[in-house]
Design a protein around this nucleic acid. Structure first.
Length: 889
RNA sequence: GGGCGAUUAGCUCAGCGGUAGAGCAUCUCGUUUACACCGAGAGGGUCGGGGGUUCGAUCCCCUCAUCGCCCA
């Protein structure tokens, strides 16, 4: 016997274990079934499950379970990402607490320490994924630093280097002075900061008392200035172009030159040029062949290239000192408040310093071409399509990708340097040494590049490296290109674009046919969840409180395309109610001996009631499948929700009750069988979204005889199951009961009082319907009796004065209040209000139908529909008028 | 500055050419043996403003306002 309420905690972990042990998650590369593959975006090994993960993995799991049930050989490839900077930071923080440090340990010991951390505490998220019910093929779990994946990284690096698509270059990079590494453009966050604009006078050489005033937001970098630039058209400064200024505090002679970059309308119109510490100035420096003077060390402290008093100062300290010294010399003309955007490292949070270093770059521009074409030609499509624009925008303006990082944790770059600096890029040290021996003519000692690769470099290979590339494995052949990538828009650039580029390059085909971009989860006020704001909703806490299914259902129900998801806990609570509702419907079935019947054929049902629920279910099944096929998770969830609660529970079960109690054994048996069948179908249709409760119910009803639901087939329903007549009939009965209920409440009829009712219907079919469903109608509308009586009967006229007259399609029903008394005035008002409503509707439709343009141009079925509506409304109005007349209005 | 998106019931959101919907909240009533994590019923919206296209606009187009996000 099922418990009174479903307790998720009691079944979830055991059910999960059963799924996993049954092998249901496994892919079968040798199977004849068509494959279906999703690459799980590998979460950071340091990560813990947050709401964004819960959403993305729920949606992926829904797709996987759905396609698995459809008979596809599914591979959901799981794994984790080594997350270079994040992981290194975690372990470094630990060392700090032990009064140790990465440097004290040395590289080899440090890396060993990180591996140890990874084995012990890494991958918590992988365990958490299980409580969400995710069903990836865990046997195939990969880690981006696994030997196989690392080999793929080396091979790709070397191959790209050989063809010049990876190269070493000295240019400005985004330098993180806290983490001591270069980072890519994407890892830089622009933040608006309130600062100042300093106007500084630079003396003009050879003209005592003459100055050119430059405006700058970073006065401290003046020590590295190598020019002053003005706009070529700027009359104010034309006479100074070609001459020189004397850099204050330093005394260096720097040219005044004309360059379009200087904006005459901004600041003073003249700008200082610091090519080694500003990306725009770097370009000016290149155009004019200016020297580049690096004035910072790796901590962004002033180095020995600056005058002695400033050496060793931190950049912010230096700013104060330099401004003070310039003021002392009367060289600060003015200081204006100024809002500017300042680059910050997304990991460290410190201000990024443009710094001149040697780094490895990927020629992203060249690689982007094939990826752009793939999307243009539709070999990969985005859902929703509008994200393609974002993708194109980024890809068409892509910059060289700086892939080297000055970290220890990651894939060390396979480059070795000879004594003279010659670089040998090879997959192994032995190969590098061989290359060096042939280059130098003798064995030569080499030193390996200490840097590691950007974490996203290995992630970019994920769709094929996890399948065994470069080996020509069966899996690679079978599952690549994958079917769909599911992810948030925030990593289109970081990851999607790069997988596209490297997939096209090395596999000769796109990594996925479809990219489904889902919304970001925000809190109920629409704010991004963050620790700082304290508005984080922990998915694991929700699972504990409401069950994984309630959380999954909520996320699916809210996952409308192209919108942020504002998650309120009340939604999860509400959908837990749905899970419980289903549970109780199953209890009802159980209590009434409704168990699955072998060989039951839903098409063979005789009772209208049963034909109706069968057809209704078939339509729901089609809707759910169509929604999932179109990635409309909210529609799938909505369809199953409304059917289960609004149709099956609210009406079908109520109608079934009198049938079960009836003497007609055949009818009862058929209804029992249909009830069990429908429940079975519901758990199938709901399983991808709410796998735990559905599996539990399935187990309960089949006693395990039919195997696990996770491995069951997705139901398909032949169109002949949909019986329009049965559906219309039941719709009418529902309308009848609803109308009576509504009128009773409106007229303050005590709920317990059972009224005698009379129905007058012109169409004999209606009376037939009433007779068929009489028991249900009496019960649900709380009537003592329902008899046929014509409005022309004398009795009708008498009763009408003490009765509520309920108007429904094709009929009018009298609810006799003789015993309880009748407020005629109130009844008149009620009928009058209803006729007013109908009149205005008639008016609206009549006007429409009176419009020749409408008749001429609207689709015929629309016109027909309006005619029908008008006819019905007119009939309703006639009934209401007669009803009013009868009570003397 | 460039781009994208939003503005629909008190709140959070669906719908996106032809009868305005859901969840939560509110109000009234109810414990009729599946379910109070419930049931019945009700109230509540000139679908941001203005213009246009159309027989017809919440839906398409333009414009304004407000608010987000991304990129510079």
């Amino acid at each position: 016997m099922l418990d009174r309420t479903y307790r998720p905690a009691d079944v979830e972990s055991a059910t999960y274990r059963q799924w996993e042990e049954s092998g249901a998650f496994a892919c079968h590369p040798d199977s004849p079934a068509p494959p279906y593959c999703i690459m799980m975006p590998p979460p950071n090994v340091t990560g813990i499950l947050h709401m964004g993960h819960a959403l993305t993995f729920t949606l992926q799991d829904i797709l996987i379970r759905y396609h698995r049930m459809q008979g596809r050989d599914t591979l959901w490839q799981p794994g984790t990402d080594h997350a270079g900077i994040a992981t290194q930071m975690v372990v470094e923080r630990q060392l700090e607490q032990e009064q140790s440090s990465r440097l004290k340990l040395g590289r080899t010991a440090f890396i060993a320490r990180v591996w140890k951390w990874k084995e012990e505490s890494g991958g918590a998220i992988v365990r958490q994924l299980r409580s969400l019910g995710a069903s990836p093929d865990w046997r195939r779990e990969r880690f981006t630093m696994d030997e196989g994946l690392s080999a793929a990284v080396r091979k790709v690096f070397v191959a790209l280097h050989k063809v010049g698509l990876i190269y070493r270059d000295k240019r400005l990079v985004n330098w993180d002075p806290k983490l001591h590494t270069a980072i890519s453009d994407l890892e830089v966050e622009s933040r608006e900061v309130r600062g100042s604009l300093w106007y500084i006078r630079y003396p003009v050489e050879g003209e005592a008392g003459a100055f050119i005033t430059v405006a700058t937001t970073r006065p401290e970098t003046m020590l590295g200035d190598t020019a002053v630039a003005v706009h070529p058209e700027d009359e104010r400064y034309r006479h100074l172009v070609g001459r020189a200024a004397v850099l204050p505090l330093v005394g260096r002679r720097i040219p005044i030159l004309a360059d379009d970059y200087a904006d005459p309308t901004a600041g003073s119109g003249a700008v200082k040029v610091t090519p080694a510490h500003d990306f725009n100035d770097f370009e000016i420096g290149r155009r004019h062949g200016l020297p580049m003077i690096n004035i910072f060390d790796r901590d962004a402290r002033l180095n020995d290239a600056v005058p002695e008093p400033y050496r060793g100062l931190d950049r912010f300290e230096a700013r104060k000192r330099i401004v003070a010294d310039l003021e002392a010399q009367g060289l600060v003309e003015k200081i204006e408040p100024h809002t500017l955007t300042v680059p910050h490292g997304d990991r460290s949070g410190v201000v990024i310093e443009p710094w001149l270093t040697d780094q490895w770059y990927v020629d992203a521009k060249a690689l982007a071409q094939a990826a752009i074409e793939a999307v243009e030609t539709g070999r990969t499509t985005f859902v929703p399509k509008s994200w393609e624009n974002t993708f194109f925008e980024w890809m068409r303006n892509i910059q060289p990708w700086c892939v080297s990082r000055q970290l220890w944790w990651g894939h060390q770059i396979p480059a070795w340097y000879g004594p003279d600096g010659t670089v040998f890029v090879e997959e192994t040290e032995a190969a590098a040494q061989a290359a060096a021996a042939s280059h130098y003519g003798k064995p030569t000692a080499l030193e390996r590049d200490p840097d590691v690769l950007d974490t996203w470099f290995s992630s970019a290979l994920w769709p094929f490296s996890t399948l065994g590339w470069p080996e020509p494995t069966l899996e690679l052949q079978r599952y690549y290109p994958t079917d769909v990538l599911v992810t948030g828009f925030d990593i289109i650039f970081f990851w999607v674009a790069r997988m596209m580029m490297l997939g096209c390059k090395f596999m000769g085909d796109v990594p996925f046919r479809t990219v489904y971009i889902h919304a970001l989860v925000r809190d109920e006020r629409g704010q991004k969840m963050s620790k700082a704001k304290g508005n984080i909703i922990d998915p694991l806490a929700l699972i504990e409180r409401y069950g994984a299914d309630a959380l999954r259902f909520t996320l699916a129900a809210l996952a409308a395309q192209g919108r942020d998801i504002k998650l309120a806990e009340s939604r999860v609570e509400g959908y837990r109610g749905f899970i419980t509702k289903l549970w109780n419907a199953a209890r009802f079935a159980e209590m009434n001996g409704s168990m699955p019947v072998k060989g039951f054929d839903p098409a063979a049902c005789r009772l209208t009631l049963n034909r109706w629920i069968v057809g209704s279910l078939a339509e729901t099944g089609a809707r759910v499948a169509a929604a999932l096929d179109a990635y409309k998770f909210n529609e799938a969830a909505g369809a199953i929700y409304h059917f289960t609660w609004g149709t099956f529970c609210d009406w079908f079960i109520e109608f079934a009750k009198p049938v079960f109690a009836r003497a007609d054994a055949a009818a009862a048996a058929e209804t029992r069988a249909v009830t069990a069948w429908a429940l079975g179908e519901i758990v199938h249709l709901l399983h991808p979204i709410a796998p735990f409760v559905t599996e539990e119910l399935w187990r309960h009803f089949t006693a395990g005889k039919d195997g696990l639901l996770i491995a069951a087939s997705w139901p398909s329903y032949p169109p002949r199951l949909v019986d329009r007549a049965a559906m219309a009939e039941m719709d009418w009965v529902v309308e009848l009961i609803s109308a009576i209920r509504s009128a009773r409440v409106e007229m303050n009829v005590p709920p317990a009082s059972e009224l005698a009712a009379y129905i007058d219907a012109a169409d004999p079919m209606i009376w037939a319907h009433v007779q068929t469903h009489k028991e249900s109608i009496l019960r649900l509308a709380r009537l003592a009796a329902l008899e046929k009586m014509s409005a022309t009967d004398h009795a009708w006229k008498t009763v009408a004065r003490s009765a509520i007259q309920v108007n429904i399609e094709g009929a009018i029903v009298l609810l006799n209040l003789a015993d309880t008394g009748m407020d005629l005035a109130k009844e008149r008002a009620r009928l009058a209000k209803e006729s007013a409503g109908v009149e205005s509707e008639i008016d609206k439709i009549a006007r429409k139908l009176g419009n020749e343009q409408f008749l001429a141009k609207a689709k015929p079925e629309v016109v027909a529909e309006q005619r029908e509506r008008l006819a019905e409304a007119e009939a309703a109005l006639a009934r209401l008028r007669t009803a009013l007349q009868r009570i003397g209005a």
